[in-house]
Design a binder for these strands. Structure first.
Length: 202
DNA sequence: ACCGGGATGTTCT
DNA sequence: GAACATCCCGGTG
């Protein structure tokens, strides 16, 4: 079967529960100004019902993008030095998003090596802050519309299906909402940020 | 392999 | 003042 031409994911793709969107983002392609990688690890942050989410306590200046329309990029700063990027989900007014945790590098690897320092390819994008550094995503990109390719950032469907059986586990690095199994990853991909025993496959 | 600690500064209590 | 959706490095086994 011939592979279809790459297309930008439409707004309606994001306008659903982040727990549904997250596993469907696996094997899509994040493209940012010439650098690109295939999404191999994600986490869902659900909003008002999720104590692990930035949106849990309501809208603030920092998390405002999470409460905006779906299909935009929510970028936040953490641990005094790192940026992390999410795809905003659900309808306008609901704080819901998918954290992009790891990519398999596809294009612009030379630029990634300059930004991240010389290292094995599997260490370029294997973590939410690493992938932002590799693609040069920072706070300037908060709010970028992925459907309109604002700032040259978009998510493409190149015809590669999401895994028939994605790995699933608890989310990484949280102290609240730890019990929810809302992390998904491509099994056995070397770019996944951490080897975690999957509780089940979907 | 695994583990502990430090970097660094914004956000929220 | 504490917490933080992290990463890196240097220790030990």
């Amino acid at each position: 079967m011939a592979r279809q031409r790459s297309s930008i994911l439409p707004r309606r793709f994001y306008r659903r529960d982040s727990r549904v969107v997250a596993p469907e983002l696996l094997n899509k392609v994040l493209l940012c100004r010439g650098a690109a990688g295939r999404i191999v690890e994600v986490e869902a942050y659900v909003g008002a019902i999720d104590p692990g989410s930035h949106a849990y306590r309501g809208k603030t200046a920092r998390n405002a993008t999470m409460f905006g329309p779906p299909g935009h990029l929510y970028v936040y700063f953490t641990y005094g030095m790192h940026w992390c990027a999410n795809a905003v989900c659900e309808s306008d007014g609901i704080g819901s998003a998918v954290l992009l945790r790891a990519l398999a590098p596809l294009e612009g690897i030379d630029a990634m090596l300059v930004r991240r320092g010389e290292r094995p390819p599997r260490e370029l994008c294997s973590g939410p802050a690493r992938l932002c550094q590799a693609l040069a995503i920072d706070g300037e990109d908060d709010g970028a519309d992925l459907v309109a390719a604002d700032r040259g950032i978009r998510i493409l469907d190149d015809g590669t299906p999401s895994p028939a059986r994605a790995g699933c586990s608890r989310r990484i690095g949280l102290t609240k909402g730890v019990e929810h199994p809302w992390r998904w990853f491509v099994p056995d991909d070397p770019n996944v940020s951490r080897r975690t025993p999957p509780r089940f496959l979907v």
